[in-house]
Design a protein around this nucleic acid. Structure first.
Lengths: 335, 335
DNA sequence: TTGTAAGCGTTATCAG
DNA sequence: CTGATAACGCTTACAA
C-alpha cells in the first residue's frame, strides 16, 4: 500500500525555483507570467506529476466545481426502462464535461435519502443543484433557491415556487397526437393518464382534455403511474367502462406498450379497431407489435439544457424562468 | 443573491461557549465529551444550522468521502435500454448512501473524457474508483491500483492486470440456457455473440461454444454489439448461412428482441420452428412477442457488490480477487 | 475531559 | 511580473 505522497504546489515551486504563488498562477492560466518561467513551471509540473488538490482549492475559492443531480424518485422507479433518467444523466454529464465540472448523483427516494440530499446541498458542497422530475410538492428546490444556491428543475415545480425550470412541451405534443387521432376519424378517444403528482402526468392529461373538449368529444380517462403494470390495469378499466372506444392515448410508452398487449388479449385489433399513441419514444417503441406511434421528447437535450441554465446561473447570469423544448409526433403503425 | 455566510465551527464554538476542538469532537461523534457539553454543542449546531465544510475536512483528513463510478463506454451506448448501467448506478448509489459517501459519475466515452477521468482519479479526488464494463484493454484500472487507489471493476479486466472484480456468472447462465435448448430437442443451435472486446461478450460466447461442443453439436456464430440493430443484422446472416437452424441464443435481450422480429419477418414461427433465448432479462423481455426466455442477471446487486468490495478495500481490508454472482434461467414462451 | 495551536494545500492581497 | 504572507475551515496531537 505505497500511498505515494502526492506532490504539492510547494514541491513544484522548489523544483522550478520560483514561489508557490507563481506556480499557482501558471497552473490557473494567468497571463501575467513570463514565458520562460511558465516553461520551467510546466516542466516541473510534468516531472513531478503534480495535480492540484481540489479540497484546498475549493476551501479558498468557495467553489467546489461539482454540481448535484438529484433524482427524487423512489429508487425502484428511477430506472425503469423509460430512459428518462438515464437520458437526463447523460445530457448533464455531457454538458458538465465541457465545463470541466463533476457530476454528483444523488437518489432521494427514501426519506433518509431525501434528508441526506438536503444536508449535502444546503451545506454548499456543490455549486448548484439539478432536480429531475419532482414528485409532489418538494420544498427543497425552493429552499435552496432562497439560500442563493443555483437550482434548476426539470418541469415546473408543483409547489408554485419561482425556480427556473426546463421542460419538454408536453401539452403541444399531446395536442398534436390527439388531433392526429381525430383527423383519423376517431371519436371515442380514451387516455391512460400518468400520476397526477408529477408535472408530466398533469400536463399530458391537460393536453388530452383540452383537445378532446375542443373537438366536442367526451373525456374517457383512467389513471396509471407510467409503468407497464399500471398501463395494463388502466387499459382493462377503460375497456370495461367504454367498450366502444376507438383510440387511446397513453401518457407513457410503457403504458402504451401494455395497452397494446391488453387490447390484443381482448381481441381488439390495433390500429383497425383501436388506435394507440404513446409518449416518450423509447427505443422499444419501434419494436412493439404493431410499432408504436408516439410523441418523441428530446430527453438528453433536456438534461443538457438544464445544465446549461444552471451553469449560467452559477456564473451570475440571469436566465429565463422557463424553457420549453419541442416534442414531435412520430407516426408508426399503431395510429 | 444573499449568499448567506454559512456558520463555521468557530461560530458554533462561540455560541456554545466551548473551543473549536470540542465542537469538532461532538460533530464527529467522539465519546470523550461530557454529556452536558454535548447537549450545548448540539443545540448551537441546530440553532445556527451548522454543516461541516467538507473541503476543509478533507484537506486535513486526506479523505474525500466520495467515490467515482466510471462508465468507459461511448456515451451513445451507455444508456441503451438494456438497463445495465442504470442498474449498476442504482446499486452503487444504494450502497454508498448507507456508507454516507457521494457518488461521482464519470462518462469516459470520448478520448477527452477518458483523459479527464484519468486526471481526476489519479489526482486522488476520490477515495476509490468503480469501473463499469471495460471496453478493450483499458490500462487505467491497473494504473490506479498501482498508485494505491482502491479500484473495483465489473468483469475481469481484459489486460490481465490483477484488479479485484465482481461479475455475474455469464458462463453458468449460458450453459444452462443452451442445455435447455438441447433438452428441448434442438440440434442446430446458433448464437448471436456480443462484442469480443468486452468480457460479457467473450464469456457468453465461451459458454455457448463449450456447451454445444460438449454435446457434439456444430457452432453457428454471428456477431453483434448487444444492440437491436446489430441483432437484426446478425439474425439475417444466420438465416442466410444456416437456413436449417432451429434455435438461437442471443447474448443480449436487445439482440434477442430483434432476432424475434427478424424471424417473424422471415416467416419462422417462434418457438415452434426456432427457439430463442436472450440474456439480461430486461423489463421488455416479458412483453416481447412471444415473451422471451432469457437469463436473468442480478445487475443492481452487481453494483452493490462492487461498491461493498471497494469500501472494504478503502477501509484497509483484503478482499477476494474475484466475486461471481449467480444468474438464473427465466423460462417464458420463446424457448 | 477540554483547550491550544499547528498544520492540510490552495488562492488572493499586497508590496516590491 | 514575482514573492511573502494571510486567510479558508477543519482535525488532531499535545498540554493542561
Amino acid at each position: 500500500m505505497t500511498t505515494a505522497q502526492r506532490p504539492t504546489l510547494e514541491a513544484v515551486a522548489r523544483r522550478a525555483g520560483v514561489s508557490r504563488a507563481t506556480v499557482s498562477r501558471v497552473v490557473n492560466g494567468s497571463t501575467t507570467v513570463a514565458e520562460s518561467i511558465q516553461q520551467a513551471v510546466r516542466q516541473a509540473v510534468e516531472e513531478l506529476g503534480y495535480v492540484p488538490n481540489l479540497a484546498a482549492r475549493s476551501l479558498v475559492t468557495q467553489r467546489t466545481d461539482s454540481i448535484a443531480l438529484v433524482l427524487p424518485e423512489a429508487a425502484t422507479r428511477v430506472f425503469s426502462d423509460d430512459q428518462v433518467f438515464p437520458g437526463i444523466i447523460r445530457g448533464a454529464a455531457q454538458e458538465l464535461e465541457a465545463a470541466d465540472k463533476q457530476l454528483v448523483l444523488m437518489l432521494a427516494g427514501s426519506p433518509g435519502g431525501h434528508e441526506r440530499v438536503e444536508r449535502y446541498t444546503t451545506g454548499r458542497h456543490v455549486d448548484g443543484v439539478l432536480f429531475a422530475s419532482l414528485h409532489g410538492e418538494d420544498p427543497l428546490p425552493g429552499r435552496l433557491a432562497r439560500l442563493g444556491i443555483p437550482v434548476v428543475c426539470s418541469g415546473r415545480p408543483l409547489d408554485g415556487v419561482e425556480v427556473p425550470y426546463v421542460d419538454v412541451d408536453h401539452v403541444g405534443g399531446v395536442t398534436r397526437a390527439v388531433r392526429h387521432l381525430i383527423e383519423g376519424g376517431r371519436r371515442r378517444i380514451a387516455t391512460i393518464a400518468g400520476p397526477q403528482d408529477m408535472v408530466a402526468g398533469i400536463e399530458r392529461l391537460i393536453g388530452y382534455r383540452d383537445t378532446v373538449a375542443a373537438a366536442g368529444l367526451p373525456e374517457l380517462v383512467a389513471y396509471g403511474d407510467f409503468t407497464r403494470e399500471s398501463g395494463a390495469a388502466a387499459m382493462r378499466q377503460l375497456l370495461a367502462a367504454y367498450p366502444d372506444l376507438d383510440a387511446v392515448f397513453a401518457a407513457s410508452d410503457l403504458m402504451a406498450h401494455a395497452a397494446l398487449r391488453t387490447l390484443r388479449e381482448a381481441g381488439r385489433r390495433v390500429p383497425d379497431e383501436v388506435a394507440v399513441i404513446g409518449f416518450d419514444d423509447i427505443e422499444t417503441a419501434a419494436y412493439t407489435e404493431p410499432p408504436l406511434t408516439t410523441i418523441r421528447q428530446p430527453i438528453v437535450e433536456l438534461g443538457r439544457a438544464m445544465t446549461r441554465q444552471l451553469l449560467r446561473i452559477a456564473g451570475g447570469e440571469a436566465v429565463e424562468p422557463a424553457l420549453l423544448l419541442p416534442t414531435e409526433l412520430i407516426i408508426r403503425d399503431s395510429a
